[in-house]
Every structure is written in C-alpha cells, then in structure tokens.
Design a protein around this nucleic acid. Structure first.
Lengths: 213, 213
DNA sequence: TTTCAATCGAGAAATATTTATCGATAAGAA
DNA sequence: TTCTTATCGATAAATATTTCTCGATTGAAA
C-alpha cells in the first residue's frame, strides 16, 4: 500500500548498467553531448529496445529524434547505483587477492571505499598494504559497529569464508561481496554477491569448446 | 543434419556449474559418496528441480531414491567444462590486476594455465612476475601462433584493451577473458567473456539500497 | 509551414529460464 | 515379499527477459 521509492529492476539490467556507464563516460570525454539508444546499442552490440528499457529503470527520459543528454544520463545511472557517494567497506583476507583488491583504485569510482583490512594471520597483522593497516580479525565487529560499516569484502580461502562472514554479521555489516568459492549461510536480511571468476571461466571454456568443435 | 556432440546449455546453468563443483569437492573431501539434488539445493539455496536440470546438461544420470555418485558427478562437470585438462593462455597487462591474476594458483583447477605475460611498458619487460617473464607485446602474435595458444586474458586499462585484443586476434587466439571495462570489437567467431567487477558491485549496491530503505 | 527521418515510450509477442507436477524407480523397512 | 519413502526424469505451467511493433514526438530540411 505504501509507495515504494526504489522499484526493483531486473538483475540482468542492473548488470548492464555499468557497461552503459563506462561507455557514456567515454562519450562524454570525447565531448559528446547527446546519444541515442540506437547508437549505444550498435556500439555495445545490444538490442536498441533493451538499451532503452535498461536506461528507463534509472528514471531518465529521452527525447524523440535526439536521444539522451549524456551528462544527466550518467548522473541518473550513478544515482541509481549509489555511485555518487562513497560507502566505506571492510575487507577480510589480506592474501594475494585481498592485496590486489586493496590496491585497486577503481572501486572508488563505483562508490566503494575499502578503509581497512583484517586477517587472522598474526604475521600479516600490523603490516600496511597499499597504505591500509591490516588489523586482527577479532577487532572487526567492534570497529564495524562504531564506524557504521555496511559493506564487507571477503577474500579469504573457501574454508575461512563462513567464519569471516559470521564476524561481519556480528559487526552489523549488511552486504557482503564474497570472492571465496562457497555459498555463505547468512541471515535472511543480508545481501550477498558472490564474485565468481570460475563462472566466467566456465562460460568461456564452454563457448570455446563450441567454437572450435 | 550432423550430430552435434556439444549441445548448448543455458548460460545461467553454466554459471552455476562451478558452484556445484566446489560444493561437490567439499562433499567428497568429507567422505560423502552420494548426494541428491534435494540436499544440494538445500545447501546452496536453490530449487531442487533446477539443480537436477543443471546437472543433467553435463550428461550425468542419477538414481531414484539415492541421487548421484559424487565422484562421477564431479568428473562429469569437469569434463563438460573442459576442466580436466589444462589450456595454456597468454595474459596482456602486467599491472596490479595482471600481477594478481598471474599469482593466482586457482586457475589451474579450472583448466587455465597462464604461461606468459605481455606488456608494452618497457620498464616491465624482462621482469619476472610469479615466475613468469614479462615479454614485449609485439612478440605475442608470433608466439601465440607457434604455441597454439587459444585463450587470452586482458588486464590492461580500458584505453589499451582494444589494441591488446587486436594483437590476440592476430596471433590466432580464439577466446578472450576481458577484465577491462570496455566492450571489444572483435571478429564474429571470437569468444569473449567480460569480467566485470563493476556489475557485481552494481547489484550489491542496489540490493543494499533496497535492504536498508 | 509542411514533410521527413530518427527516436522515444508503451505494450504485445517471442523466447528463455525457473518452478511445479507427476508417474516411475530403487532402497530399505515391515 | 510387499509397502513406504526419497528421488529421478520428463513434461507442463509460471515467470522473467528479450525482442518486435507501432503510434507519438521532435528537430531539421524542403
């Protein structure tokens, strides 16, 4: 009965939004001021109607014969994805993957700011990685609560992932970006995204097998 | 008219296969010999029928009342995904992401073996990263052809990605795993998987926004 | 001013994917 | 042996997503 301000969009659409975003940023840096779905579709190898529907979920409206104004469209996507303001996050697992994630500056562009790293390995604790100190894992709940951290990144081996997730839940974290290849057992109201390099590789392998058969 | 040995499976199914695979490996290491879709579904939070259909694409057959034998099921998935034998790959872009990918031992489990890295930056050329020498980019086509390399990994910044892809095409590479946030313009018969961290982050951001609204 | 072409937005149709239903089968208990 | 239960495989139904169609709108050219 209540008005729902955030209507749910299809996941495939949300997944394509960053592609549009990068494309539009590119257009913008080239001085382009307007762009139509037809062109976006051609360049990104998609269906024009699909592009139109995808962009529509962000609330933007285009003009017939012209298309969309690039800058407002970018803002609309940023706003829809919450990429216009930084959200602080904690990372657990300062191994090679964790180190790479800590060093990747690009996340800021996507509204994610990893402010601290945690590990249970005493040899790693105290070290600085890309300017961020590695803290003992048992400090996470207290700090997360105090700093109102909402997002956690898990980059530990599969066998430690559930424990890392539990600590995050304890600290009041609401969303987990999980790079470990396991499915986490979490309370209903938690949000999870499993980042699965294996999945993409699976699709690639399969398509390659079909292509060279 | 010809018999097609490799039937095409839905992409969502292929993407879930690695999850089953990891789960089954875990079951196997726990000494489990049989497992049913019902159990897999419960543990992985999926629909039992969906699990059954997914596994069926790999060609396995289960037994009523029992389920599937774990080991043959694992082999069936490995076989379907081509993970039972290593495919050599080249990587272009020895920056921080490239370094992380070169250091990640897990890919071997997924049939991918990165054997060499390439970069156009002279300061990086000649260096060894995780035991693999960084070679000049212009050597790629010749080497790829000679070594019959089929898979290329792109971990360069967005603006260099198309050039990297072109070099790969020139060297006869057939499948590209693209970590740069751009859509590549490639010949029809090339296979591409865009690995988009931004996509997952987009979904995570959106779900978090909905959850805390 | 009128005509034309490009594009949007909305809704319909087509396709893909997920979920439900049901008869058949196999293992173990009665 | 017969009954019961868990599960499979196949098919049908439901849902989600993509693609198509078409009238309306806008800007630019005639």
């Amino acid at each position: 009965m209540s008005v729902v301000p955030i209507k749910k969009a299809p996941e495939p659409t949300i997944r394509r939004l960053p592609d549009y975003y990068h494309y539009l940023k590119w257009m913008q840096s080239n001085g382009r001021e307007v762009v139509s779905c037809t062109h976006i579709a051609r360049d990104l190898d998609l269906d024009p109607t699909q592009v139109r529907k995808d962009l529509a979920v962000t609330g933007i409206r285009g003009k017939p014969k012209v298309g969309y104004l690039v800058t407002p469209l970018i803002e609309s996507i940023e706003n829809f994805l919450g990429w216009n303001n930084l959200t602080d996050a904690f990372l657990v697992g300062a191994g090679s993957l964790g180190t790479a994630l800590l060093g990747y500056q690009g996340f800021k562009q996507y509204g994610l700011n990893i402010v601290a790293a945690f590990d249970k390995d005493k040899r790693k604790i105290g070290k600085k990685i890309h300017g961020k100190e590695v803290l003992p894992l048992d400090k996470l709940p207290g700090l997360a609560e105090r700093m109102h951290i909402l997002i956690g990144v898990i980059s530990v081996p599969a066998e430690s992932a559930q424990a890392a997730a539990d600590v995050m839940v304890e600290g009041g974290i609401r969303a987990i970006w999980n790079f470990a290849p396991v499915s986490l057992d979490l309370p209903e109201d938690m949000v999870v995204q499993n980042e699965n390099l294996a999945s993409s590789l699976a699709v690639l392998s399969r398509q390659l097998a079909e292509a060279v058969k």
